[in-house]
Each structure stands twice: as structure tokens, then as C-alpha cells.
């Protein structure tokens, strides 16, 4: 069967299956199990109301349970076993990891990514949001800077492969160097700094995201505070740094953490640009080098990533609970 046909059938089965499930489950609940008539009509209605939420939630909870909760536990358990998965070795995989220079490089680079990418993307995004705020063609400018968000990491890497190419007739960076009279270099092979050239690709993608959110936040600042500052004689820079930025600090933190989480997941850029060579490995790409080969170590790396994400997760939950109260 061709995948295309299979896809159409899946859509039909999925859509009708879902609708059918919800409709039939409701019908059964109201008409068969707890019918709203007979001697216990009132009690039955109450019971049906108590059960219904779980009916609505059941498919979601089942899928989330299998596809997100189980793997967290499953990965942790698997990381305690050896390569073949038949022998319990406790923290063996973690011990091997901590002794592996490749892992240390990946961890160090990941720390660089986590520090640099969110900071750079948020900062540039904030600057663009402020600059375009009162511009007549601001929306066009924003939409063009936002555009890389739609491009895949693989596509973006290819785009930047052209920019970084060593041949001065292909790579624009080396073309500029050529004009100045410098010899061509391959940016992705310069030790240490190549990390930043890779990071910039992600900054290029994420700046639009930061800009859109921060631009909305800037618009939400009460006009009176700005007017008051202007009357008090604040210059544009004071206005921006002392009046506007403090008022949108909450949003800046949200943008920052969102990008941080993303950084910890992205393996595509390193994978396509260097394949982890030239000392550019990060945890997600380091994990991929064990995927399909040594599940024990791959899951151990995944657990390390999870541990790094954990504080952000807790913070997010706290924020969400605060909002709900």
C-alpha cells in the first residue's frame, strides 16, 4: 500500500475514530450507564457529570502517558543497563560518560550554547522590537526577520553553509575577506570559535520569535509611564533601558527560558554543519552518535539533558500555577 493512501486512511480513521469515540462514549454514559430518568435520575446525572471529564481526557492522557511519561521512566531505567540491555550496571554508563573527553566537550559546548544563544537572540530581538515599534514599515521588517522561524534547522544549516563556504566565489564571508586581501578560512573549522558560528544559525532563527513576543510586550506598556518619563526629560536610551525594559522583564525571562529549552533539544544544526567534528559536539548530537548503537549510553545522555532541563520545568510549573490562582 502506498504511504499516501495509508496517510489518507489514517486521517479518516483518526478523525472518525476520535469523533466516534467521544460521541459514542457520551451516548453510552448518558443513556446506558447513568440514564437521567427512573428512580435515581438525580444521582445519575451527578455521577455522569463526575465521570465525563475523564471521558474527554482519556485519549489525551493515554497518549501522553505512553509517549511522554513512560519514556522518561523507561529511558532512566534503560540507562542503568549495559549496551545489549541484558545486564544491570547501575551508574556504569554515567561513569563511562564522565570519563569520556567527547562527553566533556559536548557538555562544555552545550553550556556555551545555553549561555550565548538565548542571550543573543533575546537581545537582538528586543532591539529589533524597539526599533520597529514606531516605524511605518515596521510590520514588513518584522515579518522578514521573523521568516527564518519557518525554515527547518536543516534548511537553515544549508543556507549558512553557503555563507560560510571556504571558496570565496561561494561563501560571502570569504568573499569579503578576499576583497580585503585576507586568505580564505573555513569558519566551521576554527577551533572554539566555530561553535559560535554554529550558534549564530540558531540565533538567526530564534531572533524573530523573541522579537514578536517582546514587541507585543512593548506595546502593552502603559502609555502614561512613558509620557511621564518624557516629560521628566528622559532621553530615548534612558526611556528604553530604565522605563521600558524593567516593565517587560517578566516577558524577557519567559522568552529567555523558552529559547534555552529549545537550545537543549536542537541537534540538527551541529549534525548537518559538522557532524560533531572539529570539537563542535553538543549533548543532543553526542547522543545521536550512540543512537542505534549503544542504547545504554544514548539514554544516559538523554537523562543528563533531562536533568539540565529540570529546573526550567519546575519554574514553568510554578509560573503556570501562579497564573491560575
Amino acid at each position: 500500500m502506498s504511504p499516501l493512501l495509508q496517510g489518507i486512511i489514517t486521517i479518516l480513521v483518526g478523525v472518525f475514530g476520535c469523533v466516534g469515540y467521544f460521541y459514542a462514549a457520551n451516548l453510552v454514559l448518558d443513556k446506558v450507564i447513568f440514564p437521567a430518568r427512573g428512580p435515581h435520575a438525580g444521582r445519575n446525572i451527578n455521577r455522569a457529570t463526575a465521570v465525563r471529564p475523564w471521558l474527554f481526557l482519556f485519549p489525551a492522557i493515554a497518549i501522553l502517558g505512553i509517549y511522554l511519561v513512560y519514556p522518561v521512566v523507561g529511558s532512566f531505567v534503560r540507562s542503568l543497563y549495559n549496551r545489549a540491555g541484558d545486564e544491570f550496571i547501575g551508574a556504569g554508563n554515567y561513569a563511562t560518560l564522565s570519563g569520556d573527553p567527547g562527553f566533556q566537550t559536548a557538555l562544555f559546548n552545550n553550556a556555551l550554547w545555553v549561555l550565548f544563544v538565548p542571550a543573543a537572540a533575546t537581545f537582538i530581538g528586543l532591539v529589533v522590537a524597539q526599533l520597529t515599534d514606531r516605524l511605518s514599515w515596521g510590520n514588513i521588517a518584522k515579518s522578514l526577520i521573523f521568516m527564518p522561524m519557518a525554515i527547518s534547522f536543516v534548511g537553515a544549516s544549508l543556507i549558512w553553509k553557503f555563507v560560510y563556504a571556504g571558496d570565496p566565489d561561494i561563501g560571502i564571508i570569504n568573499a569579503v575577506r578576499d576583497v580585503i586581501g585576507l586568505s580564505p578560512v573555513d569558519p566551521v573549522q576554527i577551533p572554539f570559535w566555530n561553535n559560535f558560528f554554529l550558534m549564530f544559525i540558531l540565533v538567526w532563527i530564534q531572533t524573530g520569535f523573541a522579537m514578536v513576543i517582546l514587541s507585543a510586550a512593548l506595546r502593552g506598556i502603559p502609555e502614561e509611564t512613558i509620557e511621564a518619563a518624557i516629560i521628566d526629560g528622559a532621553n530615548p536610551f534612558q526611556l528604553f533601558f530604565k522605563i521600558k525594559v524593567p516593565q517587560i522583564m517578566g516577558t524577557i525571562v519567559v522568552v529567555w527560558t523558552t529559547i534555552t529549552i529549545l537550545v537543549l533539544k536542537v541537534f540538527d544544526i551541529v549534525y548537518t554543519m559538522t557532524g560533531g567534528n572539529f570539537g563542535t559536539d553538543i549533548l543532543p548530537s553526542y547522543m545521536m552518535s550512540f543512537m542505534f548503537r549503544d542504547d545504554g549510553r544514548a539514554t544516559a545522555v538523554a537523562v543528563v539533558i533531562m536533568v539540565v532541563v529540570l529546573p526550567v520545568m519546575v519554574w514553568n510549573i510554578r509560573q503556570a500555577q501562579k497564573e491560575m490562582r
Binding site: 481526557l57 492522557i61 501522553l64 505512553i66 509517549y67 511522554l68 511519561v69 513512560y70 519514556p71 522518561v72 523507561g74 529511558s75 534503560r78 529549552i261 537543549l264 533539544k265 541537534f267 543532543p284 547522543m287 543512537m291 542504547d295 544514548a298 539514554t299 545522555v301 538523554a302 537523562v303 539533558i305 533531562m306 532541563v309 526550567v312 520545568m313 514553568n316 510549573i317 503556570a320 500555577q321 491560575m324
Partner: peptide
């Protein structure tokens, strides 16, 4: 409230964690 908190928590679970166990499953 607990379920909503759980959903917010699951938002940030790294995909990497899911790969090996799910493929085996």
C-alpha cells in the same frame, strides 16, 4: 490543577528521552 501542571511540565520534556524507549516499544 494537578493535570494542568503536569501538561506544563511535559511541554519541556526533551524529545531525546523518548527516542529509545518508544522505538523499542
Amino acid at each position: 490543577g494537578l493535570l494542568i501542571a503536569a501538561i506544563v511540565g511535559l511541554l519541556v520534556v526533551p524529545l531525546q528521552l523518548a527516542l529509545v524507549p518508544l522505538l523499542n516499544l
